[in-house]
């Protein structure tokens, strides 16, 4: 099952309160797939990621209730998967799709969804020392879906809360 290790959850809670030993700091606790939306780098913990594909033909679901950021459904190896444009989900301006545009298929508890992102970057090894706590600023649209933040040498990476993306996606409308 795609759930982060218990250790990781513990680390997230105690990120700033306890001082881990040097060895613990260096040990890898998870891997994260990073992608870009404009200038900002985001990450998804690897266990949630099923596959990365281009942007296939999207069939629009013509129902007035379906929110604007759900672009429609696609056929991923004979599975019907809904796709979300991450730009519009995060309140950014949508741009056209080019050859760098990717769909990241994520899944939790057998519910799959495709996330359309500008560009997929890398898979990073995350250690304890990278993890910083999310600031308690929930009024920013972006922050609703951020689980925690990684501080790396090459900049900050916002790790997404896949549970919220999949099961509470209407948060984006609020």
């Amino acid at each position: 099952m795609a759930t982060p290790t218990r250790e990781l959850a513990a680390v997230k809670q105690t990120a700033q309160s306890q001082k881990p030993t040097h060895l613990e700091k260096e040990a890898e606790i998870t891997k994260t797939l990073t992608f870009a939306l404009g200038d900002q780098v985001y990450g998804i913990e690897i266990p949630y990621v099923i596959e990365i594909i281009g942007v296939p033909k999207i069939t629009v679901v013509p129902c007035p209730e379906v929110p604007y950021f759900i672009k429609g459904i696609i056929n991923v190896r004979s599975k019907v998967v809904p796709v979300v444009n991450m730009r519009s989900c995060f309140g950014k301006e949508e741009i056209g799709y080019d050859d760098k545009t990717c769909t990241i298929i994520v899944s939790l508890n057998d519910v799959s969804v495709g996330l359309i992102v500008d560009e997929v970057l890398d898979v990073l090894s995350v250690t304890r020392k990278h993890i910083a706590k999310t600031p308690e600023l929930n009024n920013v649209n972006n922050n609703k879906f951020i689980d925690y933040i990684l501080e790396m040498n090459d900049g900050i990476k916002l790790i997404l809360d896949i549970k919220k993306i999949i099961f509470e996606h209407d948060l984006a409308l609020m």
Binding site: T59, E65, S78, V81, V113
Partner: peptide, 20 residues
């Protein structure tokens, strides 16, 4: 339709499902 879309009344809009 995938469970992700389950909370929207797509059936009410006149669509019962999809096919590949």
């Amino acid at each position: 339709f995938p469970p992700y879309l389950g909370r929207y009344n797509i059936k009410g809009a006149g669509l019962s499902g999809c096919t590949i």
